[in-house]
Computed example of a mutant assay.
Amino acid sequence: MDALLEIADTYVLDTIYNQLALLIAPVALPQDDSSLSNVTAATNSLFSTGAWQTRSYIPRQILSLSILMLLGAHILYFLFASFSYYFIFSHKMMHHPRFLPNQISLEIKTSLKAFPLMMLLTLPWFLAEVRGWSKLYNNVSDHWGGWWYLVGSVAAFLLFTDYCIYWIHRWLHHPLLYKPLHKLHHRWIIPTPFASYAFHPVDGYLQSVPYHLFVFLVPMHRYLYLGLFFAVNFWTILIHDSDMITGHPLENIINGPAHHTLHHIYFTVNYGQYFTWADRAGQSYRHPDTSLDPLLEVKMHSESLKEGKAKPE
């Protein structure tokens, strides 16, 4: 996020804060009212032109990050989810008997309600990045491993976050946590891409922690991390498209949409985010066999409805 904030500062926010600083320039202090004078002095200090023009000013960083997070969350959500919904998601799934009335609207409303608190919980991580407390670095040459390390850090990021999310996700299915936190997300038994962030906000935040934690433990190129952040968001949406395409050579390795579709249907299988290895080790893996395709149930349901209409009264 520090890379994104730097870009936003350079091209947009510096200008905005300069203009705002002029609008809220310090006012003259009254001479006869000491209490009002103290309040005005404090206000002048908080909104002083020099402070808000400084990128390292913490209130400015908090405000900027909050704006970027909320705008970014909404843009990425609607952009990626809409793309997946219109070009990947099978609309036949909406005729599944367990697809809820007005489900897409409910998924979107749940996501939008979750965003503000999720962003608030995530803000300290991003602020710590911006303040320079993470292990993010600027140039490939800044790390002794160079390009080899850059490539290796991608593998480390994926393996670390996948394994951590596996356990966080599995713990969220514990009876003590499932009902108050995770049950809401499993309301969508046949999810659409818009269900990807239809979480309880604490649930969504907990599953995001490994992404933030990684760069405080392991050095990573800042722009690579930003790219992975966008990729992770797209993947999270993609695996909620209820796709059950099977038979491809990577399905034994990659925990894709078919695997996650089975997770929503059967609840206690395929907790992983990217790979199947953690589920295999944890004995929670279920292979996406074609016989488990929910589209088969859609066809059966459709045929039963036709038969019911065809019966004479």
Rank of each mutant, 00 (worst) to 15 (best):
P97Y: 02
E107L: 05
I75R: 00
N18T: 11
Y57D: 09
P97A: 08
F47I: 09
S66Q: 06
L123I: 01
R131S: 10
W125C: 03
S34A: 15
L63R: 05
D32C: 11
L63V: 03
I88A: 08
N44M: 07
K109R: 15
M94D: 10
N38E: 14
L4W: 13
S45D: 10
G132D: 08
S66C: 05
N102P: 00
F78L: 07
L100Q: 14
Q31P: 03
F89A: 08
T122F: 10
H95A: 15
R55Q: 12
L13Q: 07
S64L: 05
L123Q: 11
A81Q: 02
H91V: 07
Q19T: 07
L123M: 14
E107Y: 03
F126I: 00
F80G: 00
S35R: 11
V39D: 14
L20E: 09
M94F: 02
S35C: 06
M69R: 11
H91D: 03
Q53R: 15
N44F: 01
D9S: 06
L127P: 05
P30M: 01
R98I: 03
V130A: 07
I62F: 12
L23V: 09
S66V: 02
F115Q: 04
R98V: 05
I62Q: 02
I108D: 09
I88Q: 03
T110R: 02
I108A: 06
K109C: 09
N102G: 04
E129L: 11
L79E: 02
F83D: 03
L70R: 04
S90T: 01
L121W: 05
T10I: 03
Q103E: 14
D32T: 13
P97K: 05
D33H: 07
N44Q: 10
L117A: 09
S134F: 08
H74P: 00
D33Q: 14
L120E: 03
H96C: 10
Y85I: 03
L5Q: 10
A128P: 08
